[in-house]
Design a protein around this nucleic acid. Structure first.
Lengths: 141, 141
DNA sequence: CCCATTGTTTAGAATAATTCTAATTCCTAC
DNA sequence: GTAGGAATTAGAATTATTCTAAACAATGGG
């Protein structure tokens, strides 16, 4: 657990490293995603952020999320037609959507499997992103 | 190319085989998806269906699509936050979303790759569905 | 230091895909 | 034929997200 000041330092540094202005709003949004790594929706993030910064608006949360996604600090996860979720795990990984609880679990993808996946593309196809997701009954993981 | 009557027969039969009432609306919706296998959205399907059955309503198209999806005659394909697309290819396959044209291509997934995918799940996880999709620059396929 | 420019935040309105509602119509089985 | 359940319809409602326009903040050049 870091002190608030250390926390702030770290967040600030991460944002600067990505060439985005480290505004307080962006820091708080990033913070809540890193703090509770449970794939929250924009609404959930909004609620958590408001606890620390009551004046923030939902539009700003969306703006910040867009920025964080496009600079690669968080990932976007979509399931079917459900609201977009946000994920701080930057390693290549898949998602498992538990049908019973609605929870999302990260699943590690070994490098060789990833390579196999890219290899199934016919020649001429250049994938800039691969999405892999499962749905079903999750284990006790 | 089949005659309209043969067409009707075939569609009718497919619906009955799935234990759903073979209504004219369901037949036409299924028909347009099978006829032009280009992953249309509900709106596009609505437009095509209206050409043959001008009185149909959008709600009915959604109802029919739901029915066809849940009885397994068509598959639903979701990309990011874009409108849901519908796919008549019932074989296990992945999708490639061409960023330039917006077109969706079916990609065959060899059985062993699929097996490998399911194998990356930790014990206790039971996947009822696997989704694999790519985004990028498509080939001439 | 001051202003201009540009980037950010904000509240609220707007949009777009989808779902819901309630009324009507259509089948199917008795 | 008629009762009862399923399907269709038009339109309203919902929901996540995006847009708009105004206010605000930071940065850099003079």
């Amino acid at each position: 657990m870091k002190s608030p000041a250390e926390d702030h330092e770290a967040l600030h540094a991460r944002l600067k490293a990505c060439d985005v202005r480290p505004t307080p709003q962006r820091e708080v949004v990033l913070k809540v995603i890193l703090d509770k790594r449970d794939h929250p929706t924009a609404d959930e993030i909004f609620a958590r952020v408001k606890a620390q910064m009551p004046t923030i608006s939902l539009a700003t949360v969306y703006n910040c999320l867009d920025t964080l996604v496009s600079c690669g600090l968080v990932r976007q996860v979509n399931f079917e037609r459900a609201p977009t979720r946000y994920c701080p795990n930057l390693h290549e990984h898949a998602h498992f959507h538990d049908e019973a609880t609605g929870k999302v679990h990260d699943i590690a993808v070994p490098a060789d499997v990833l390579a196999r996946l890219r290899a199934i593309l016919p020649s001429g196809f250049e994938a800039s992103a691969v999405e892999l997701s499962f749905r079903g009954k999750a284990g006790t993981n």
